[in-house]
Design a protein around this nucleic acid. Structure first.
Length: 677
DNA sequence: AGCACGCCGACT
DNA sequence: GTCGGCGTGCTC
């Protein structure tokens, strides 16, 4: 152990350690000029890479002669402020991910490169900041500030009292209850204090209405940050917040890493949305990271949702969060009534009962719109042979091919492989192939047949794929003309359909017997959100759920007591089964060409990581959909009541994985996985 | 991750 | 004889 000045540097490489360097030439006695968060250019192997100064130390494990000096100091001031650096250090520990990689992820791509000073010529084409016409047309005009109702006021005032200090506020408001208005008031309050605001949304492309509304009220003080922008646009947006030129950033999950000059408030809209979870690389949850950020920056954070995650509700029940409820709709509209349609012994047409079909007719006749929710795109999910039972499967994935119309094809919903529709069975050559089950396209067809005088508008990822297509479809749906809206979960996401009076869940049982411990929660959230689309424009809404299990206790609870009642019962079930939030999970996943290789690898891992008694390891088992895009997915699930014990085990695991050469398998470790199948 | 080194198959 | 495949090892 040598004792002299060394600089600990994080380098963007999949290595769970820092690298020691000597100070740059000319800085040996000017160490105070070096600070955490500054970028440096360092020799690394036979190349030069960018690194971040993490700290200055006076010890190193290496002999002095092996240390090289930093080549260049790239910043005179830390690029990232101390509170953000602390956040990234926490992320590295919590998600067991190399710090250097996290730093690279946190920077806009333009700043990740070693070359160039990333100066941007002030281009006048700031597409990022502009609202297009469709979006503007979708926003109702509210020339006067709407007054807050008593619940909105209570929430607003309580949160205002906690400005300049950390606190988590769960704002549970039914659809249409005016959460956005509370956000707006809070944002304006922060602006009045000369503070900046971060508003995280699940997907900007899916919430143009909310963005447009904010833009309208807060005009050019707002900047967007999402994957639809070019690298340069993102850099401009990032910079405008860093320099304090803009006060509000509305962004998707990666916006949580933006350095703010004077952050005063964080808002997470639709906090239960799974889009906040990064699906590849660093598998972080932007909501959880944002909560830690608020803690480190000592600012309040608001989690808004009509259907909060069970975890968040539990945290509120435990007193860790403060909860405010907005139980009634703002303005005149009334909450819809919910009822089930018992499908048992019913004659169905493309999954629709006679009762539902006549209800649709009634609502259309009374000149209002109908919304049908079916979370499955395409025409039919199964295409099989009547003669021998052969089912068309994807060759790359462990999944049946879905039949699509216009264009006519079979398509895999996991890898998007497209094949022609055969007329003869590939197994027995008989011409007996037929489609089983239904997707949104089939509903569209059958409804056109039943109600030829009314237009059907399909809203799924197929009909909204193109640029601006979603906005066009939404614009059509917002017209007053009676019509039928048919869609997947896109319908559930925050869009306002003012003329819908009937919302129907076609397959209410879809999530009832899911394989994952979270399926019921997600299903209840979807049903509630879809139901919330009905009756917002003045008329009383009606929500119907088709089910074969009208007696299912949790479904019943949802229908009779609403999401709040459901969540209480669902939490009891979680507790009984020891699932989160009553335990902590981590998932080690591997992808291999042959399944056996994955199983053997994970068995080895399990044997070689001496475990804490309190950590339970389940597996290895193949994932539910084991084969995907040609790779078999296998996994090992870690579960513990004690979070610390789990993380100590994972620390050992990560070191073991790094020490043993594991190049033949692709693996990833996910903390707090959202699904475990 | 990159980038080198190193040891075995088909080619001017 | 060598060009180049990707297995293994290392980076302060």
């Amino acid at each position: 152990m040598m004792k002299f000045n060394v600089v600990k540097v994080a380098i963007s490489a999949p290595l769970h350690r820092l690298f020691d360097y000597l100070p740059p030439k000319g800085y040996r006695d000017k160490l105070d000029k070096l600070a955490q968060g500054m970028r440096v250019k360092v020799p690394f192997g036979r190349r030069e890479v960018m690194g971040f100064i993490i700290r200055i130390a006076d010890t190193t494990e290496l002999p002095q002669e092996r240390l090289k000096p930093i080549s260049t100091l790239l910043d005179t001031q830390p690029l990232l402020p101390p509170s953000l650096m602390q956040l990234l250090l926490w992320i590295s520990q919590y998600y067991h991910y190399p710090l250097g990689e996290i730093l690279a992820i946190a920077l806009p791509t333009r700043l990740r490169r070693l070359k160039g000073t990333a100066q941007v010529r002030t281009s006048k084409k700031t597409r990022a900041i502009q609202v297009n016409n469709y979006e503007t047309q979708l926003v109702e005009s509210d020339p006067v500030l709407p007054t807050l109702n008593s619940e909105q006021k209570t929430a607003f005032e309580a949160i205002c009292k906690h400005f300049n200090q950390f606190g988590v506020f769960l704002l549970e408001g039914v659809t249409g209850s005016g959460k956005t208005e509370v956000y707006l008031r809070l944002i304006q309050q922060a602006l009045a204090h000369n503070q900046q605001v971060l508003l995280l949304v699940p997907e900007i492309s899916l919430t143009p209405q909310m963005v447009a509304r904010l833009q309208k009220r807060l005009d050019n003080n707002i900047t967007l940050f999402h994957s639809g922008l070019t690298d340069t646009e993102r850099f401009i947006s990032w910079k405008s917040i860093q320099l304090g030129e803009k006060s509000i950033m509305v962004g998707t999950r990666s916006a949580v890493f933006t350095p703010f000059k004077r952050l005063g408030l964080i808002i997470i809209d639709e906090e239960q949305d799974s889009s906040f979870k990064q699906q590849s690389g660093l598998l972080y949850h932007a909501r959880d990271v944002a909560i830690m950020r608020a803690r480190l920056e000592k600012v309040p954070i608001v989690l808004g949702s009509a259907t909060p995650a069970l975890e968040s509700l539990w945290n509120a029940a435990q007193g860790r969060y403060r909860k405010f409820t907005l139980p009634r709709r703002a303005g005149a509209s009334v909450l819809p009534t919910m009822q089930v349609i018992d499908l048992r012994q019913q004659q169905l047409q493309a999954g629709l009962s006679q009762k539902l079909i006549s209800l649709i007719g009634q609502h259309l006749k009374s000149k209002s719109q109908v919304l049908l929710f079916l979370n499955r795109r395409g025409f039919a999910p199964i295409y099989l042979c009547h003669d021998c039972g052969w089912t068309m499967m994807c060759t790359q994935c462990d999944s049946p091919l879905r039949l699509h119309h216009r264009p006519e094809c079979l398509r895999c919903h996991y890898c998007e492989t497209v094949v022609c529709v055969p007329t003869d069975c590939p197994a027995c050559n008989q011409q007996q192939l037929f489609a089983l089950g239904q997707g949104t396209q089939k509903l569209e067809k059958i409804l056109a047949h039943h109600f030829p005088d009314f237009e059907s508008i399909r809203i799924d990822s197929d009909s909204t794929r193109g640029k601006g297509q979603l906005q066009q479809v939404l614009l059509r749906a917002c017209q007053e003309k009676p019509c039928i809206l048919i869609g997947t979960q896109i319908l559930a996401k925050g869009h306002h359909f003012p003329h819908v009076s009937l919302a129907a869940v076609v397959e209410g049982d879809a999530g009832l017997f899911g394989t994952d411990f979270r399926s019921l929660e997600q299903s209840a959230q979807l049903i509630t959100q879809v139901g919330g689309r009905a009756g917002r424009g003045g008329q009383v809404g009606q929500v119907v759920i088709q089910t074969y299990h009208p007696g299912h206790p949790l479904l019943n609870q949802l229908i009779t007591k609403g999401y709040t009642g459901f969540s209480q019962l669902a939490l009891q079930e979680r507790k009984r089964a020891n699932w989160p939030p009553f335990s902590y999970l981590a998932l080690l996943r591997v992808e291999t060409r042959q399944q056996q290789v994955g199983l053997d690898f994970l068995r080895q891992v399990k044997e070689n990581c001496r475990l804490d008694q309190s950590v339970v390891v389940l597996g290895p088992i193949p994932s539910l959909l084991t084969k995907r895009a040609g790779y078999h997915r296998t996994q090992l699930l870690f579960r513990a009541i004690n979070r610390l014990a789990l993380h100590q085990t994972l620390q050992r695991l990560v070191h073991y994985l790094e020490a043993t050469s594991t190049r033949h398998v692709r693996y990833s470790l996910e903390i707090d996985p959202l699904d475990v199948c």
